[in-house]
Amino acid sequence: MNMSSKEVTTSKIKVRVKYLSVLRDKTDRSEEDVEISEGGTLADIVSYLHGEYGIVLPEPQILLVLNGKGYNQYPEKLETKLKDGDTILLLPPVSGG
């Protein structure tokens, strides 16, 4: 997926987005590569998810995980810059049973 049509000269990076458990039901796919401009942030992915699937984040029923850690564990939160090859997981809240 290429989410930017304006900045054709800007370098692009590709991040892998995975939709786990019930999130797969919302997107009808288990994963995809999303291309954003270099220097892009998690907020760009949030915008993409809203535009593509109507998913509104942040939302308590959906966890946003970047490279294995919850997004809110990064000091910049949604403004955290992404790198080429980063992995983002969307998953339901987890709890023991």
Binding site: L63, K69, G70, Q73
Partner: peptide, 18 residues
């Protein structure tokens, strides 16, 4: 269970790096 299921807090609370 008895020992304390930490994954929720370590992943989503924002307070604890896993």
């Amino acid at each position: 269970n008895v020992g304390g299921w930490t994954i929720r807090d370590e992943l989503q609370s924002g307070k604890y790096d896993r």
